[in-house]
Amino acid sequence: MLEQSILATSVWRGDAEGGEFQRFEVPRRDSQTVLDVVTHIQQELDPSLAYRFACRVGMCGSCAMMVNGVPRWTCRTHVSKVSGNVSGGGGELQIAPLRNLPVIRDLVVDMAPFFDKWTAAEGVFRPSETRAAPMAKVQPGSPARAAANAGIECINCAVCYAACDVVAGNTDYLGPAALNRAWTLVNDARDGGQAERIDAVSSEGGCHNCHSMGSCAQFCPNALNPTAAIAGLKRETVKAKLGWRR
């Protein structure tokens, strides 16, 4: 039954100048993912379709796209979950490049602004010791380590960045992923770049622009909560400003 039905799929085609949706009819299959649909189109229907993927198992964070208007990791998104139940057919899919990032071609966006903001948020580990120093002792149960652990499984897929309405309205805003990364490092006892990081996330595009709408937490495929991380940064930056931070 499922094998015979057809999935009506609209895929955005174009480049930085603009574009439009193109219709494809894709055979519906069992356990089919959105990435399977895109791959079918590229391999069987139109080899000129540009898209990006690597691991296909939700580790690398390269296949995120807008699926029916919502940012998703397409390799781990089953068609059955998102295509709706169009009677007599296999449902409908609309696939577009990630929001809030410049399009290069078709479903491929330029991730440079996203990663530039990781750097701008001081999302880089700054060692406080040399490699000759003994291994740092970090208690796994300490509050700081627990806070870092909560945010550490980010795969840099930019789903949160695409979901964020503050990013959409303010291109200077560092965004949920970069700030979440900064928060994990603020809670890293081994890091020696805290003052610079606090300054970086206190700047004009920093954590204080977050309206706590929570789209990042809602759409994060790894169920992280950047909204909570940003709230943590707000607390720490205020403490630093008032001189209450150690």
């Binding site: 303010n170 200077d172 206190s202 700047s203 004009e204 595009g205 920093g206 204080h208 622009n209 707000k234 930056t237 205020v238 630093a240 400003k241 008032l242």
Partner: peptide, 12 residues
């Protein structure tokens, strides 16, 4: 748009 100073002022 909002740095830590303006954020603090608005909360206070």
């Amino acid at each position: 748009m909002l740095d830590v100073r303006l954020y603090l002022l608005q909360r206070l």
